[in-house]
């Protein structure tokens, strides 16, 4: 059914535009064909991006359940009042924020450092790209399978590494701090390469002449990095920062698969909270209200970033 819906406008485009002659290229001359080209995209965009926002807004005003069809009865804004006064909701919100605070500095600075060092190598770039970026194409579930095995007490590699350097490994699955350590390390390994690639690309944009001029002036490698590379990478760092913050606030996969939000919900991120209330407790209306509160927070973060960037960097884009 959808194939038809997508193919149909295309065929119509062909017919209408064939009858059009080159002379009717007025400013308004392409309205019909323009909309036909945009129609498949806009249809799906409205249905599946705008649609859920509106549906969520409506459901959040009813005591809808996810087991039976239908809206249920009107409850006004009481779902929102419940969400905003729920300790569990704010706890899970805090877990998402804490995850962001734990991972973002590492994922902002470590890839930067290694991208700068790797870019100084004349050969072997492919190897660094391979080693750092390959984890990014691995499904989260496979990453969690491997890390869960490496975190296993006694038999796991990482548990043993702690022993080799004379430390007691933390309880990766049973203690909250151990669990955060486990998730942070896994995330660092998994997503490091993405930022590494962004930095590497930006470093290659820097003109060779700048470095040559600096070298002639007697700047050593460390001075070159500090006074040329890093300042010129500031826009990229700002881009990486916002991508990182937005992606981290949406964390779900690793925490859910590796820890199921445990121990005792102490790492449960907000998406899992919505998932649990909506699909395990079947409180659709309530979960929709939580969704919208969360949604507004995320949109606020990106809009704030846009405003800050516009003020500091001027009209040029990152």
């Amino acid at each position: 059914m959808t194939t038809g819906a997508v193919a149909l406008p295309a065929r119509k485009v062909d017919e209408t535009s064939r009858s059009a002659t080159p002379e009717d290229r007025g400013p308004r001359g392409h309205t019909k064909v323009g909309w036909l080209f945009a129609a498949p995209f806009l249809t799906l965009y409205v249905l599946f991006l705008i649609g859920p926002v509106l549906i969520g807004a409506v459901i959040s005003l009813f005591n809808t359940t996810t087991v039976t069809p239908g809206l249920g009865t009107w409850v006004g804004l009481s779902n929102y009042a419940d969400v905003l006064s729920s300790g569990d909701f704010w706890a899970s919100m805090w877990h998402s924020v804490l995850f962001t605070l734990l991972t973002t500095p590492l994922l902002l600075l470590l890839p930067l450092l290694f991208a700068i060092l790797a870019s100084r190598m004349a050969r072997g770039q492919w190897f660094y790209r391979l080693a750092f970026f390959a984890p990014f194409v691995v499904p989260s579930a496979a990453v969690c399978l491997i890390f869960a095995f490496m975190y296993t007490p006694e038999t796991g590699l990482i548990s043993n590494v702690f022993g080799w350097v004379g430390l007691t490994p933390p309880d990766f699955f049973g203690s909250t701090s151990g669990a955060w350590f486990a998730v942070t390390l896994l995330t660092l390994w998994w997503t490091f390469g993405f930022n590494f690639i962004l930095y590497t690309a930006a470093i290659q944009e820097i003109s060779e002449e700048v470095y040559e001029a600096a070298a002639i002036d007697g700047a050593g490698p460390w001075q070159q990095i500090r006074s040329i590379t890093i300042p010129l990478l500031r826009p990229t760092m700002s881009l990486v920062l916002i991508l990182q913050v937005l992606a981290s606030l949406k964390v779900f996969d690793q925490i859910y698969i590796l820890l199921a939000g445990g121990p005792n919900y102490s790492t449960r991120p907000v998406i899992q909270y919505i998932f649990d209330t909506g699909f395990t407790s079947y409180r659709g209306g309530y979960a929709a209200a939580a969704t919208l509160v969360y949604f507004v927070i995320l949109v606020t973060v990106s809009v704030l970033w846009l405003l800050i960037r516009r003020r500091t960097a001027g009209p040029q884009s990152a």
Binding site: F48, G51, V53, I55, T66, L246, K250, I274, F279
Partner: peptide
């Protein structure tokens, strides 16, 4: 942030 919209999307 479309990932946040799983619940209404599911409905």
């Amino acid at each position: 942030p479309t990932e946040a919209l799983i619940l209404p999307q599911f409905m």
